[in-house]
């Protein structure tokens, strides 16, 4: 609005105002009309003043390219991935096994999409969801491999979709995507994590201190050497994506097994020098369906996207149990 007023003023003052004033000025030379001379001169002064104020501002603020870059016609910063067909892309096929909650069965759907060399399986799935089939259901969030949402099975291997490159995993121009089988399926690629979280809680996964008030007041930090840190650090990288449970042959045949994720976290807190729970942590998992159910197939460590090595953690727990001479309890429920 203000721009248009300003441009009106700057355009019309010279176009009409100046000739009109000249005309009035000339009229004033006719005898008897000399009073118009003062009138036209004062009008001219006013006009010049107005032009000066508005016009100069207009020229300097709008027309002239300022010292800082002006972005009116500048490049468009496009997402470039989710919606557009990117450059240097090739067509790939996603064969997606979607779980249907009504029929309780997997249905295969095929989609074709363009993918460039940077696109992840998650990018591809979202492209499908946003442009072809909004009903496709999947879980995702950070797209940088740290939130643990997008665990699924690609070409038969449990992976994080956001960390899995399309080009590198394409055979015959296509790849297979299906939900994890180590967790109950909910819909399409989404699985139910309630049991998984319950199992995590079974191992009391928090730093235990005898004095709770002191823990919460926090006047001083606990000292910890680098050696002490290194003892638990590798096991603290767990993002709770659930891939290890999908890969574990024991979990898939015996759902009561606490599983590699929870057990690795039991070791993570046991090995932390700041924790005061001591051997009670070992007793807590020293069960038939705890550490002793692990057959050390090592598949959990093979699929862990963050290199946690749960299989090793479980063997360390077994060693601690033997060292501390603890007899296995029957199972968690009977304890």
């Amino acid at each position: 609005m203000r721009e248009s007023v300003i441009s009106l003023f700057t355009a019309y003052v010279p176009m009409f105002g100046v000739p009109a004033m000249l005309y009035i000025y000339m009229l004033s030379f006719i005898p008897g009309l000399s009073f118009l001379r003062a009138f036209s001169l004062s009008l001219a002064m006013l006009g010049l003043l107005g032009f000066g104020i508005f016009g100069m501002r207009h020229i300097f603020l709008v027309k002239k390219r300022p010292a800082m870059p002006l972005f009116e016609e500048a490049e468009t910063i496009r997402h470039g991935k989710d919606f557009k067909t990117p450059k240097n892309s090739k067509a790939v096929k996603f064969r997606i096994k979607r779980f249907n909650p009504q029929s309780k069965s997997l249905e295969e759907h095929e989609y074709s999409l363009p993918a460039d060399r940077f696109d992840s399986v998650l990018d591809g799935l979202l492209w499908i969801k946003h442009t072809q089939d909004p009903t496709l259901s999947l879980r995702y969030s950070c797209r940088m491999g740290v939130c643990g949402s997008c665990g699924m099975v690609v070409n038969g291997k449990p992976v994080l979709a956001c960390e899995t490159n399309i080009w590198k995993n394409t055979e015959d121009n296509g790849l297979d995507v299906e939900p994890m089988r180590g967790h109950p399926m909910l819909r399409d690629l989404v699985t139910d994590f309630d049991d998984f979280f319950e199992k995590h809680l079974l191992v009391n996964p928090y730093l235990y201190r005898k004095a709770v008030a002191e823990k919460y007041s926090a006047e001083k930090e606990y000292k910890q050497t680098r050696d002490q840190l290194d003892r638990f650090l590798p096991f603290s990288y767990c993002i709770m994506c659930g891939l290890c449970l999908d890969a574990c042959p024991v979990v898939n045949t015996n759902p009561t097994f606490i599983g590699p994720q929870a057990l690795s976290q039991a070791y993570r807190y046991y090995a932390d020098s700041r924790d005061q729970a001591g051997v009670s942590r070992i007793e807590n998992v020293d069960l038939v369906n705890g550490i002793w159910d692990c057959e050390f197939s090592d598949s959990c460590s093979k699929v862990c996207p963050k290199g946690v090595d749960p299989a090793f953690a479980i063997q360390l727990l077994k060693a601690e149990a033997i060292k501390n001479d603890i007899f296995p309890q029957k199972d968690h429920q009977n304890k």
């Binding site: 928090y206 730093l207 606990y222 910890q224 840190l229 700041r274």
Partner: peptide, 9 residues
């Protein structure tokens, strides 16, 4: 730190 964050030391 009291809750168990693995601070670099």
């Amino acid at each position: 730190d009291h809750l168990g964050v693995a601070w670099s030391r």
